[in-house]
Each structure stands twice: as structure tokens, then as C-alpha cells.
Design a protein around this nucleic acid. Structure first.
Lengths: 146, 146
DNA sequence: ACATAGAGGACCGGAGAGGTCCTGTAAATA
DNA sequence: TATTTACAGGACCTCTCCGGTCCTCTATGT
């Protein structure tokens, strides 16, 4: 089913949760785990990775927590996914040339590149802000989706 | 990396190989395995599934083999993928409602639906014929891809 | 009848996803 | 400065499921 890993799925949910706060303030991992009802250890793991990739900023200590590194409108969903499960690509050749043993004899590589790009661009166009906007449908009009 | 299963990957390659034959004639599994350099048992497995799903027609017996069930222009890549790894969807909720335990408390479900649909439509628009057309770029223009 | 090729399974090993836990370090408060 | 809280960065484990093989049965042509 062309599955997204749970790590990436959780990441999207958590980013959206942070963006839901109108002030985009700081929330700690435990709080986010409760809000999203996701297992706390996983939430910690995901938040750490998102921080390392520069999508979140963290604050240690007693009133520590996480906050969006940039306004939600400037964070594409594709970045969230790639931070957690590597580059968005359907096939190995879309990630790095030479990573597929069949590359020399493969006749469908070029088309796959186009498909990969089309999908990447779709995920580039959706931002974290779109995930929390109530009237999402409007925001998605530009995707050409009914 | 938002991975496609190898089964589906092989399926696409095999469908393309069948479409490359200008007469779209019948080819047996062994022959296709040699042409694509994929392991023969896997080729058999994939071809069987594609046949069960009505994308290929098969002929048993001494001059048996497989051929496209329809003209390549009428076979979207999305069908090939879904025949081999189930419905195209990034999240469980995109496959069947109620399949995700977090559904009641999840706030990003609606946006995911739109994203799922955008990606599905991308894969719907590409046909097996596009995979073998030399000047693929032209065929992909309609995807809005550079 | 016999050789060939597909149909439909069962079956197996290993990689990797999903999940937990532990130790270290930074910050705030008293 | 001691203590508590929370993030940082791993190691580590379990178990599912993917990738792959193989075997038996049935259909077809010679």
C-alpha cells in the first residue's frame, strides 16, 4: 500500500499538533504524547529527529520543550517525511544513482524519475499549516484535487 | 524513503517489458526473467498476481505465456501497484476507514485524504505505455512535471 | 502419453520497523 | 550548589513481513 513508516506518520501528527497552538508556543514531549495519544518514548524519538533536522527547536531544562523552528506555512510535509525516513522516492534509483543493481539494464528508470518528481512536488506543496487549517479543501485546490 | 515494495517494482518493469514488444505478443515467464534479469521465481509470482487481477492474460501449455490484457495506454501504473501491494495510500486511514486506532482522536486525517488522493491521481495518469515511450518527457508534460 | 508452462499454495530466513530503556547533559529553581 | 526536570543520543530487543524458493496440480499442444 505504498506505506509511510509510522515514524513519519507520527512526525506529521506531532508537527500538526504543534502548529495547532495559535501562539506556536513550546510543548514538552510528555504533553504532546498525551495530546496525540501516541506512546511517549516514540514521541521523544520522533521529536529528537525533527530537531536534529532543523524542523523544530528545543529547549532543555525545567520549562523545556519543543517548538516549530519556522512558521508552519514554511514547513512542507515532504521535509517532515524525509527527516524521518530519508528521501521521498518510490524506487532506489530515485534516492541515489547507482544504488540499484539493475540500473544498467533497466528500461523504466527515466519514467520512474518523473513519477518520483511528481510525487515529491505534491508533498512539497503541502505545508504543516495546511494540515491544521480548518478549511483544508481550499488550501488543497492548488493541488488539483477535487 | 516512502518505499515501493520490490514486488510492485518488478511488476512495473515486467509490464513495461511486455509493452515494449510492438506486437504486444505473448512471452513466457522464463523469457521475461531473462529480458529483465530478474529472478525467475519472482517473475512467476508477479505475473501470476497480475493475471489474477486482470491486467494480464495467460495461456497455459507448450506455447503458453503472458500478454497484456488491454492496450498499454489503458493500463495505469496505479493498477499495477495496487494489484501487487494493495491500495495506494500513505496511511492506514486512506485504505479503509476504521483501520487505524487513532482515527477518533486524529486531527490530520482529512488533509491526509487529500494528499493520498493527489498521489493516487498522479499514478492514475501515468500508463504503462508512458513507461516505454522513448520521449517520455512529452507524455509527462501533463503531470506538470518539468 | 508426454513435455511444457501457468496456478496456487506453503514455507523459510533475514532485514528492518516499531518500540523501550539507559546514560549523559543543559537549564531553572530554591 | 543541589536538585529536579527535560532533551540528546544511543544501544538494544522483538517480531512482523518482505523477498525469495519450491512443490504439487492443472491445462495445452505435439
Amino acid at each position: 500500500m505504498l506505506r509511510l513508516s509510522k515514524l513519519a506518520d507520527y512526525g506529521v501528527v506531532l508537527m500538526a499538533e504543534l502548529a495547532r497552538d495559535p501562539e506556536c508556543g513550546s510543548h514538552n514531549a510528555r504533553e504532546l504524547a498525551e495530546l496525540t495519544r501516541l506512546p511517549f518514548p516514540m514521541v521523544g524519538k520522533v521529536l529528537k529527529r525533527l530537531t536534529r533536522d532543523g524542523l523544530l527547536v528545543s529547549q532543555r531544562g525545567i520549562h523545556g520543550g519543543y517548538a516549530l523552528a519556522r512558521p508552519a506555512e514554511q514547513i512542507p510535509v515532504s521535509k517532515v517525511i524525509s527527516a524521518l525516513e530519508g528521501p521521498v522516492a518510490l524506487t532506489a534509483c530515485g534516492v541515489a544513482p547507482g544504488s540499484c543493481e539493475h540500473e544498467p539494464s533497466c528500461h523504466v528508470r527515466t519514467p520512474w524519475e518523473y513519477i518520483n518528481r511528481a510525487i515529491t512536488e505534491t508533498l512539497d506543496r503541502v505545508t504543516v499549516a495546511d494540515l491544521v487549517r480548518p478549511a483544508s479543501a481550499i488550501a488543497f485546490a492548488e493541488l488539483g484535487v477535487r
